[in-house]
């Protein structure tokens, strides 16, 4: 999941008109879309801003680990595909920021929150991309996990978010396939390539499972988000789906999932898997991931070093407006 902080759900601050709340809840229950001008409870609005801005931040920060390999992609085709993919992520960030702005929070406020370290983004992007295989693993596992989470969000109750998600899901599924294709090639390649592929799977597997967020029994506000239909399946349900889909894919290309406890459970019709290191997850959420400092510094540097460009664009637009007025 691209949002890691949902458990910190906001409590309603003011007393809201019970009739309006009831009408809102009824609309949600009828699976109607809530649109920007509709009345909504403050807590719904705040939770959505948090969820959507975290999602947008994740897209933007997510450009960094993959961007790290654009200049080193091993063929012209791989370079073009990776450029296109990273550009898509930037585009996703843009739509989601725009969709979140309809809730009354400006992009600037959201971006400031990211740069100051106040806002969160997916824990997964705080891990380093060491080899080319990591680009395969990110597409296959990270985008694969993102799709699991985002497909149900195409039916999220907030209209602009749901609609943004429709387009995003189409592109994510291309990303997932390109990642798997990279891994497939490596797994069938030289000994050095196989080693890279297996090592990438070893490093990215557990952080990918953590992307779905804390276990359901430790995710107290999931129920509220589910009732609001801005989350449509629980963390554990989505995680299980991901494992069930991904394990056979790994087997198909001859890679081993790094989990000695992984076994097919006939009775459940699903894989049982080993314990997730939640201490690691919470540490990464706190900003203690291996590349957290690098990621935040890269975003801040880009922003600060680009300040003069944004100022120039604003100044130029103002000059033009003055000229147009004078004419």
């Amino acid at each position: 999941m691209y949002t890691t902080e949902l458990q910190k759900n906001a409590q309603p601050t003011a007393v809201e008109d019970p009739a309006r709340v009831a009408e809102f809840e009824a609309r949600i229950a009828r699976d109607e879309f809530i649109e920007p001008k509709d009345w909504m409870p403050e807590a719904y609005r705040r939770t959505l801003v948090r969820q959507m801005s975290q999602h947008a931040h994740s897209e933007i920060v997510g450009m960094l680990p993959e961007g790290n390999w654009i200049t080193r992609a091993p063929s012209l085709r791989r370079k073009a595909v990776l450029l296109a993919k990273v550009q898509d992520e930037g585009g996703h960030g843009l739509y989601i920021y725009a969709a979140a702005e309809t809730l009354g929070t400006s992009r600037e406020q959201m971006v400031d929150a990211l740069h100051s370290g106040k806002a969160k983004y997916s824990t997964i992007f705080n891990y380093p991309t060491l080899t080319w295989a990591d680009i395969g693993a990110i597409g296959w596992l990270v985008d694969g996990a993102a799709i699991m989470n985002q497909v149900p969000l195409q039916r999220a109750s907030y209209g602009p978010y749901a609609r943004a998600m429709v387009r995003i899901c189409k592109e994510e599924s291309f990303h997932q396939r390109q990642g798997f294709e990279i891994m497939m090639g490596l797994a069938a390649g030289t000994a050095a390539q196989k080693r890279m592929a297996q090592d990438a799977l070893n490093r990215w597997w557990w952080p990918s499972l953590m992307m779905f967020g804390p276990p359901d029994d430790n995710s107290p506000n999931s129920a509220q988000s589910m009732r609001w239909r801005i989350k449509r399946e629980t963390n554990d349900e989505l995680r299980q789906k991901f494992v069930d889909v991904t394990v056979p894919q790994a087997e198909a290309i001859g890679l081993t999932i790094p989990d000695p406890d992984l076994t097919w459970n006939e009775a459940r019709g699903a894989y049982d898997f080993g314990a997730i290191d939640w201490d690691e997850f919470y540490a990464v959420v706190r900003g203690e991931g291996p590349t957290a400092k690098e990621r935040l510094k890269a975003r801040n540097d880009a922003w600060n070093e680009g300040a003069w460009v944004r100022e120039a664009a604003t100044a130029h637009a103002a000059k033009r407006a003055r000229k147009a007025e004078a004419a």
Partner: peptide, 25 residues
């Protein structure tokens, strides 16, 4: 391609990547 993820705005990031993509093509 070196700019990717580091441009002054998201919009600039996207058009630089766009140009890069055309050039690689």
């Amino acid at each position: 391609g070196e700019w990717c993820g580091h441009a002054p705005t998201l919009e600039i990031d996207l058009f630089l990547a766009n140009i890069a993509l055309d050039l690689i093509g």
